[in-house]
Design a protein around this nucleic acid. Structure first.
Length: 900
RNA sequence: GGGCAGUUAGCUCAGUUGGUUCAGAGCAUCUGCCUUACAAGCAGAGGGUCGGGGGUUCAAAUCCCUCACUGCCCACCA
């Protein structure tokens, strides 16, 4: 046994020491072996990322399962990595440049990308470093960056393959445009927010001067691109006008009045202006009716020459001016307040502009079918399961995925355009020439755009294992990565937030099925959403997202991990009591106090071990006490329950089971009894036998606790059980439930003992007896229990602070005593002169009232013929037993009351 | 408009298959303790009838219906 443990657990030093040891010994590296694999894919944090509490929760859960699998002898691999996060990273670097008064175009594409790489190299690994502070036991040797060479190749090959199959195509569509990023966005990157604007009703004069059509719009700045006004074909008000023309205000242009069901006669005036270039619905109507397309808003969200005097104005400024001019010219009929939803860019704060442009799309329907099936047929299980509905809904209505981004940072689209306008996707210029049937040296231009970040993320299950794409599979055949995928795929668990179920989870399922014919993972655990005390999501901008490293520094990593797990039930939001001023989370004390409790329980055992003579061996004749057998029984149940909770992904319960076992059973009762047993034991060899029992329970308990509290458990495992520095609890073996140790008879007996002690304590407290004062106690028990209670005399005496303890079957209530009844046992505490008769009478009366009411309930049940006829026999028997017990207790209490 | 969660003690939440005093835990509150592992602790106490209403059942916090409120996701009719 090593050095004495300190009085208080101080995580700061020991945690980093342990992590260094773990890392140096490379114990978390994994490779295919004879053992059953267990693998987890880490959701790759962004290179710009800094650890936040979402990561803490997410990675703690993953680490728990990884460590638990490792303890259970699985070949355990946790694949970590980093995401290049296209838009996010590029925006960051552009902001940096802006401080120097530069824009990316000033540098040029190549120099700019170089700057981003510099940024990535400087800040990219920070979060991975931070995850180590948290204790994450990933296989760092396998860390992958989504823009690493192998991953990039896979991305390009996948693109080419899908292009060749016609599943990736180019098209001119209305897409979500971010004027700030100057790039397209996918539908998933747009979030809708309610906005209070105005609904303007404009006068469109009929071209022949015969009247005016009133048209409502929230975007009067788009009138310059109007190509028609639509009315409902069944709308009698306007039927006669269909086919005639109206003048678009402020333009001198006339457009036709067309009939289309899209126009809702009950909304506004029933007339809709049609602007195909600036509204997805209008675009479709334009297609249906063969209308021309006019575009008046440009990529930077300013108006172009079509807008005449308004050209060059930013869209919202233009709206103001246009409205003003309409007002002047009398063409503005009315202006009403109007609240509706507007799409905003997920990252930036700006309103997304529906923008007509050439983009690349993935045709999703063919990919969605098998992916939907894999979840429906149970090959993949979601926890909590209700997310399946969301998944199904999205998958059934999936729309094509816009994957091109007008950015520089990312995987360049492997498409080459010939001078004649033809194009193809290929792995190189030369390959493209061959595909297009062009001669060597023919000029080609590569598509300037890059791919959506998620186009690399969806290959994560394969690229993390070294996959280089479908063509490589067929041609070069990478044995190494093939072996890894055969062994580790499908991975066992994915832990992620429900917010990226469409972005990532669904698409990984599609890609893995498409390219490897295998599901990427079996179980998906959706984590809780973290909120502050006011219920708001944690976010940097709100200032309600403390830096986890500071919190870890204050409470310890184990404490933070434990608290997060304890507080975060499966599938529900979690409120954290974040103090915005101090950036502190006081509830972390729960974990810290618990860690300290574990620490001190071990410290106690260690001290007792030091007290016995060195090298004493356990007395083979030692007969385990009731408490010894009780704690073994409780421990066996705990192993069983904790394992089951983990298997079922009820990690909060796992945490609670351990918390209660260690604190309530082990510390509050077992350790207290052990103190008595050690004092009473006649020899050191007996003491060693007693301690052996305690050590074996604490050894197993540390293993159970290790997945959630890796640092302190390894430290105690060494400090207490004398393991060498080369060993780690994390690579030792988990305990299995010894169901034979579960002994319900002993548990019942011990519980009664606990209740007797508690009753005595309650009496003392109510009578105001100072804790130090010892009083006589008389226990009247059943004849056949006298021996048992006598054997527990020392324990009761110590825990209930008795002076003299008299145990017998045939005892009378002593003079000057207060009494109580516990499971048929009568307890008398001799308080002599200190007795407060009023209080005592009140206490017993209250107890009698309670029992009388409870008994009445039972008797009512038992006298109910249908209850007796229908209820299960054991339930009825139970009620009968209660009736007997309570009748007996009532009798004893009444006698007690009478004697006061 | 469609879908999914949630509503249990002052606060944050447990409560697996309806039935052992199941109405629990932590924090907070109150009382008393530095009892030689732990004051980051120990011993006690008070506090809720389980959102409202209805139903099924011998029996409901637990199952069904309905209403209300809260949150999230999807859709997005100018």
């Amino acid at each position: 046994m090593s050095q004495a443990l300190d009085k208080t657990y101080s995580p700061a030093n020991s945690e980093s020491t342990w992590y260094s040891l773990w890392q140096a010994s490379g114990i978390y590296h994994s490779a295919p072996s004879e053992r059953t694999p267990y693998s987890v894919l880490m959701p790759p944090p962004n290179v710009t990322g800094i650890l936040h509490f979402g990561h803490v929760l997410n990675n703690t859960i993953q680490d728990i399962y990884i460590r638990w699998a490792r303890l259970n002898g699985r070949e355990t691999c946790w694949f970590p990595g980093l995401d290049h996060a296209g838009i996010a990273t590029q925006t960051k670097v552009e902001k940096e440049l802006k401080k120097q008064g530069l824009r990316r175009h000033d540098l040029g594409r190549e120099a700019f990308i170089e700057r981003v790489w510099e940024w990535k190299n400087t800040y990219g690994g920070i979060i991975l470093e931070q995850l180590r502070t948290l204790g994450v036991s990933a296989d760092w040797d396998r860390t992958l960056f989504t823009m690493d060479e192998s991953a990039s190749q896979a991305v390009a090959e996948v693109f080419v393959r899908l292009f060749d199959e016609g599943l990736v195509y180019r098209g001119k569509r209305i897409i979500n445009w971010s004027p700030v990023a100057q790039s397209a966005l996918s539908d998933e990157e747009v979030i809708f927010r309610e906005v209070r604007e105005h609904l303007y009703t404009l006068q469109y004069h009929l071209e022949d001067g015969s009247g005016t059509l009133l048209v409502a719009t929230v975007r009067p700045e788009t009138i310059f691109a109007d190509v028609a006004v639509a009315v409902n074909p069944h709308d009698e008000r306007y039927q006669h006008l269909i086919g005639s023309r109206v003048m678009v205000p402020l333009t001198g242009r006339s457009v036709p009045i067309i009939a289309d069901d899209y126009a809702d006669p009950t909304f506004g005036t029933g007339c809709v202006k049609i602007t195909p270039a600036h509204d997805p619905n209008d675009f479709e109507i334009g297609q249906r009716h063969g209308l021309p397309i006019l575009q008046c808003i440009q990529a930077d969200a300013t108006l172009n020459e079509l807008a005449g005097e308004f050209a060059g104005l930013e869209r919202f400024m233009a709206r103001k001016k246009v409205v003003a001019r309409l007002e002047e010219t009398g063409l503005l009929e009315k202006k009403e307040d109007y609240t509706h939803n507007v799409g905003f860019s997920e990252r930036g704060e700006e309103a997304v502009e529906p923008y007509l442009s050439d983009q690349w799309f993935v045709s999703m329907k063919p990919l969605a079918g098998p992916a939907l099936e894999a979840v429906r047929d149970g090959s993949i299980t979601f926890y909590p399961n209700h997310w399946v509905r969301t998944y199904e809904h999205w998958m059934s209505n999936v729309r094509d995925w816009c994957i091109s981004r007008q950015l520089w940072w990312g995987h360049r689209i492997p498409v080459y355009y010939a001078e004649d306008g033809r194009y193809t996707a290929a792995m190189s210029e030369q390959a493209a020439r061959i595909k297009l049937g062009l001669e060597q040296g023919a000029t080609l231009r590569q598509d300037p755009d890059v791919l959506d970040t998620w186009f690399s993320s969806w290959l994560w299950p394969m690229t993390t294992m070294g996959w280089r794409g479908p063509a490589s599979d067929e041609v070069t055949r990478d044995e190494q990565s093939e072996k890894l995928m055969r062994y580790y795929l499908p991975t066992n668990l994915l832990v992620t937030g429900p917010d990226i179920i469409f972005f990532w989870v669904a698409r990984m399922i599609m890609a893995s099925l498409k390219f490897k014919g295998v599901i990427p993972f079996r179980d998906v655990y959706f984590t809780s959403i973290l909120r502050d005390a006011k219920g708001r999501k944690l976010s940097k901008s709100l200032g309600n997202s403390p830096d986890p490293l500071n919190v870890i520094e204050k409470y310890g990593s184990d404490a933070v991990r434990f608290t997060m797990i304890y507080l975060a039930p499966l599938g529900m939001d979690v409120r954290l009591d974040i103090d915005e001023k101090t950036q502190d989370i006081a509830s972390m004390e729960l974990g810290r106090n618990f860690a300290n409790k574990v620490w001190n329980a071990c410290r106690f055992l260690q001290m007792k071990k030091f007290d016995v003579a060195q090298a004493t061996s356990a007395d083979a004749e030692y007969e385990p006490s009731t408490a010894d057998r009780w704690i073994r029984s409780r421990y066996a149940s705990t192993v069983q329950a904790a394992s089951k909770a983990l298997d079922e992904y009820r990690i909060t319960e796992y945490a609670k089971i351990l918390y209660d076992f260690i604190w309530r059973d082990f510390c509050d009762w077992y350790v207290e009894v052990v103190k008595v047993q050690l004092t009473q034991a006649p020899s050191d060899s007996q003491r060693v036998a007693i301690l052996d029992n305690a050590f074996s329970v604490i050894d197993g308990t540390l293993h159970l606790l290790h997945p959630v509290m890796p640092f302190i458990t390894d430290e105690l495992w060494h400090g207490l059980l004398g393991h060498t520095a080369e060993e780690s609890i994390s690579t030792s073996t988990a305990p299995t439930a010894q169901t034979g140790d579960i002994d319900l008879v002993t548990e019942e007996r011990f519980e009664t003992l606990q209740q007797v002690v508690e009753a005595l304590r309650r009496q003392r407290s109510e009578m105001g007896i100072p804790p130090g004062e010892r009083l006589d106690v008389h226990l009247r028990v059943r004849q056949d229990e006298v021996e048992f209670y006598s054997s527990q005399g020392a324990v009761i005496t110590a825990l209930a602070r008795c002076a003299e303890l008299v145990i017998g079957h045939d005892l009378d209530k002593p003079q000057g005593s207060v009494g109580d009844v516990v499971r048929g046992n009568e307890i008398y505490l001799v308080v002599a002169g200190k007795i407060d008769f009023e209080k005592e009478r009140a206490r017993i009366t209250k107890e009698i009232d309670r029992l009388t009411a409870a008994l009445a309930g039972v008797e009512k049940k038992l006298s109910n013929a249908s209850f007796v006829a229908n209820a299960k026999p054991e339930i009825i028997e139970n009620e009968r037993q209660k009736q007997a017990d309570w009748t007996d207790a009532l009798m004893k209490l009444q006698r007690n009351l009478a004697s006061i």
